[in-house]
Amino acid sequence: MTFPRPRAIVIGASAGGFQALRTLFPVFPEGFPVPILVVQHQPTHGSGPRGCSLLALHCRLPVREAMDKEPIQSGHIVFAPPGYHLLVEPDFTLALSTDPAIHHSRPAIDVLFETASDVYQAGLIGVLLTGASQDGTAGLQKIRQRRGMTLVQDPQSAESPFMPRYAIAHGAADQVLPLSAIALTLKQLGNVQHE
Protein backbone atom coordinates (compact mmCIF):
# COMPACT_ATOMS: atom_id res chain seq x y z
CA MET A 1 0.00 0.00 0.00
CA THR A 2 1.44 3.38 -0.92
CA PHE A 3 0.24 6.20 1.26
CA PRO A 4 2.64 8.92 2.43
CA ARG A 5 3.17 9.42 6.12
CA PRO A 6 0.06 11.19 7.45
CA ARG A 7 0.32 14.69 8.88
CA ALA A 8 -2.21 13.90 11.59
CA ILE A 9 -4.44 11.12 12.91
CA VAL A 10 -7.91 11.82 14.28
CA ILE A 11 -9.79 9.18 16.26
CA GLY A 12 -13.47 9.14 17.24
CA ALA A 13 -15.03 6.75 19.73
CA SER A 14 -18.22 6.52 21.75
CA ALA A 15 -19.73 3.69 23.80
CA GLY A 16 -17.02 1.10 24.51
CA GLY A 17 -14.37 3.53 23.34
CA PHE A 18 -12.15 3.59 26.41
CA GLN A 19 -11.59 -0.14 26.18
CA ALA A 20 -10.83 0.13 22.46
CA LEU A 21 -8.40 3.02 23.01
CA ARG A 22 -6.68 1.01 25.72
CA THR A 23 -5.99 -1.66 23.12
CA LEU A 24 -4.94 0.84 20.48
CA PHE A 25 -2.66 3.22 22.36
CA PRO A 26 0.11 0.83 23.50
CA VAL A 27 1.03 0.25 19.85
CA PHE A 28 2.40 3.78 19.39
CA PRO A 29 6.16 3.88 20.03
CA GLU A 30 7.87 6.69 21.87
CA GLY A 31 8.49 9.63 19.53
CA PHE A 32 5.72 8.60 17.13
CA PRO A 33 6.12 11.26 14.43
CA VAL A 34 2.44 12.17 13.96
CA PRO A 35 0.01 14.10 16.20
CA ILE A 36 -3.03 12.14 17.43
CA LEU A 37 -6.28 13.96 18.26
CA VAL A 38 -9.14 12.12 19.93
CA VAL A 39 -12.83 12.66 20.59
CA GLN A 40 -14.25 10.17 23.06
CA HIS A 41 -17.88 10.79 24.00
CA GLN A 42 -18.28 10.95 27.76
CA PRO A 43 -20.59 12.48 30.32
CA THR A 44 -19.72 16.09 31.20
CA HIS A 45 -20.26 15.66 34.91
CA GLY A 46 -18.23 12.55 35.64
CA SER A 47 -16.72 11.75 38.98
CA GLY A 48 -13.29 10.29 39.58
CA PRO A 49 -10.24 10.73 37.37
CA ARG A 50 -10.84 11.68 33.76
CA GLY A 51 -10.71 8.84 31.25
CA CYS A 52 -7.72 10.25 29.45
CA SER A 53 -5.51 10.25 32.53
CA LEU A 54 -6.29 6.56 33.00
CA LEU A 55 -5.39 5.87 29.38
CA ALA A 56 -2.04 7.59 29.88
CA LEU A 57 -1.04 4.60 32.00
CA HIS A 58 -1.28 2.36 28.94
CA CYS A 59 0.71 4.48 26.59
CA ARG A 60 4.27 5.55 25.84
CA LEU A 61 3.13 8.88 24.41
CA PRO A 62 2.05 11.86 26.52
CA VAL A 63 -1.77 11.93 26.84
CA ARG A 64 -3.74 14.97 27.97
CA GLU A 65 -6.84 17.13 27.47
CA ALA A 66 -6.56 19.92 24.93
CA MET A 67 -6.06 23.52 25.99
CA ASP A 68 -7.43 26.24 23.74
CA LYS A 69 -4.85 27.63 21.25
CA GLU A 70 -2.12 25.11 22.06
CA PRO A 71 0.16 24.16 19.15
CA ILE A 72 -0.42 20.68 17.75
CA GLN A 73 2.56 18.43 18.50
CA SER A 74 3.72 15.20 16.92
CA GLY A 75 3.86 12.24 19.27
CA HIS A 76 1.25 13.67 21.63
CA ILE A 77 -2.22 12.25 22.15
CA VAL A 78 -4.69 15.04 22.88
CA PHE A 79 -8.33 14.56 23.90
CA ALA A 80 -11.27 16.91 23.52
CA PRO A 81 -12.21 18.03 27.06
CA PRO A 82 -15.69 16.98 28.21
CA GLY A 83 -18.21 19.68 27.33
CA TYR A 84 -16.14 21.21 24.52
CA HIS A 85 -15.85 20.62 20.79
CA LEU A 86 -12.23 20.23 19.65
CA LEU A 87 -11.26 21.94 16.39
CA VAL A 88 -8.11 22.36 14.30
CA GLU A 89 -7.12 25.89 13.25
CA PRO A 90 -5.33 26.65 9.96
CA ASP A 91 -2.16 27.64 11.87
CA PHE A 92 -1.93 24.09 13.30
CA THR A 93 -3.16 25.02 16.75
CA LEU A 94 -6.11 23.54 18.61
CA ALA A 95 -9.29 25.45 19.35
CA LEU A 96 -12.24 24.68 21.58
CA SER A 97 -15.86 25.72 21.29
CA THR A 98 -18.97 25.46 23.39
CA ASP A 99 -21.27 25.46 20.36
CA PRO A 100 -24.36 23.25 20.69
CA ALA A 101 -24.03 19.48 20.80
CA ILE A 102 -24.14 17.57 17.50
CA HIS A 103 -25.79 14.13 17.51
CA HIS A 104 -26.35 14.84 21.23
CA SER A 105 -22.60 15.05 21.77
CA ARG A 106 -20.17 17.72 22.78
CA PRO A 107 -17.43 17.00 21.95
CA ALA A 108 -18.64 15.79 18.55
CA ILE A 109 -16.46 13.59 16.35
CA ASP A 110 -17.71 15.32 13.19
CA VAL A 111 -16.45 18.72 14.37
CA LEU A 112 -12.91 17.45 14.91
CA PHE A 113 -12.84 15.40 11.70
CA GLU A 114 -14.22 18.18 9.49
CA THR A 115 -11.97 20.95 10.81
CA ALA A 116 -8.90 18.68 10.77
CA SER A 117 -9.68 17.74 7.18
CA ASP A 118 -9.95 21.44 6.23
CA VAL A 119 -6.39 21.90 7.46
CA TYR A 120 -4.61 18.60 6.73
CA GLN A 121 -6.48 17.78 3.52
CA ALA A 122 -5.15 14.51 2.04
CA GLY A 123 -2.63 14.14 4.86
CA LEU A 124 -5.27 13.11 7.40
CA ILE A 125 -6.16 9.66 8.69
CA GLY A 126 -9.61 9.37 10.27
CA VAL A 127 -10.35 6.42 12.55
CA LEU A 128 -13.85 5.62 13.77
CA LEU A 129 -14.26 3.08 16.55
CA THR A 130 -17.04 1.51 18.60
CA GLY A 131 -20.15 3.51 19.50
CA ALA A 132 -23.92 3.85 19.47
CA SER A 133 -24.13 7.20 17.70
CA GLN A 134 -24.34 8.59 14.16
CA ASP A 135 -21.48 10.94 14.96
CA GLY A 136 -18.35 10.62 12.84
CA THR A 137 -19.85 9.55 9.51
CA ALA A 138 -20.11 13.06 8.06
CA GLY A 139 -16.58 13.77 9.23
CA LEU A 140 -15.20 10.63 7.59
CA GLN A 141 -16.98 11.52 4.36
CA LYS A 142 -15.29 14.90 4.40
CA ILE A 143 -11.89 13.28 4.95
CA ARG A 144 -12.51 10.96 1.99
CA GLN A 145 -13.59 13.86 -0.24
CA ARG A 146 -10.26 15.48 0.50
CA ARG A 147 -8.45 12.21 -0.32
CA GLY A 148 -7.43 11.47 3.24
CA MET A 149 -7.74 7.89 4.48
CA THR A 150 -10.54 6.51 6.67
CA LEU A 151 -10.34 3.39 8.83
CA VAL A 152 -13.46 2.03 10.51
CA GLN A 153 -13.52 -0.62 13.18
CA ASP A 154 -15.08 -3.87 12.03
CA PRO A 155 -18.55 -3.77 13.66
CA GLN A 156 -18.20 -7.43 14.60
CA SER A 157 -15.20 -6.60 16.76
CA ALA A 158 -16.79 -3.46 18.24
CA GLU A 159 -18.34 -3.45 21.68
CA SER A 160 -21.07 -1.25 20.24
CA PRO A 161 -21.39 -1.85 16.48
CA PHE A 162 -23.89 0.90 15.54
CA MET A 163 -21.48 3.78 14.90
CA PRO A 164 -19.02 1.90 12.65
CA ARG A 165 -21.90 0.15 10.87
CA TYR A 166 -23.58 3.49 10.18
CA ALA A 167 -20.35 4.88 8.69
CA ILE A 168 -19.83 1.80 6.50
CA ALA A 169 -23.45 1.90 5.31
CA HIS A 170 -22.94 5.51 4.23
CA GLY A 171 -19.81 4.75 2.25
CA ALA A 172 -17.50 6.56 4.65
CA ALA A 173 -14.94 3.76 5.15
CA ASP A 174 -11.85 3.17 3.01
CA GLN A 175 -10.98 0.13 5.09
CA VAL A 176 -12.95 -1.88 7.62
CA LEU A 177 -10.58 -3.56 10.04
CA PRO A 178 -10.53 -5.22 13.44
CA LEU A 179 -8.92 -3.17 16.17
CA SER A 180 -5.59 -5.01 16.05
CA ALA A 181 -5.26 -4.35 12.32
CA ILE A 182 -6.12 -0.66 12.80
CA ALA A 183 -3.36 -0.47 15.40
CA LEU A 184 -0.86 -2.10 13.06
CA THR A 185 -1.84 0.12 10.12
CA LEU A 186 -1.44 3.30 12.16
CA LYS A 187 1.93 2.17 13.45
CA GLN A 188 3.16 1.39 9.95
CA LEU A 189 1.88 4.68 8.55
CA GLY A 190 3.92 6.46 11.21
CA ASN A 191 7.06 4.68 10.04
CA VAL A 192 6.74 5.81 6.41
CA GLN A 193 9.30 8.42 5.48
CA HIS A 194 8.12 11.69 4.04
CA GLU A 195 8.56 11.79 0.28
Partner: peptide
Protein backbone atom coordinates in the same frame (compact mmCIF):
# COMPACT_ATOMS: atom_id res chain seq x y z
CA UNK B 1 -12.36 35.31 15.22
CA UNK B 2 -10.87 31.81 15.40
CA UNK B 3 -11.39 30.45 11.92
CA UNK B 4 -12.44 26.86 12.43
CA UNK B 5 -15.55 27.47 14.52
CA UNK B 6 -16.43 30.64 12.58
CA UNK B 7 -16.34 28.68 9.33
CA UNK B 8 -18.58 25.98 10.77
CA UNK B 9 -21.08 28.51 12.06
Amino acid sequence: YAQASLKRR
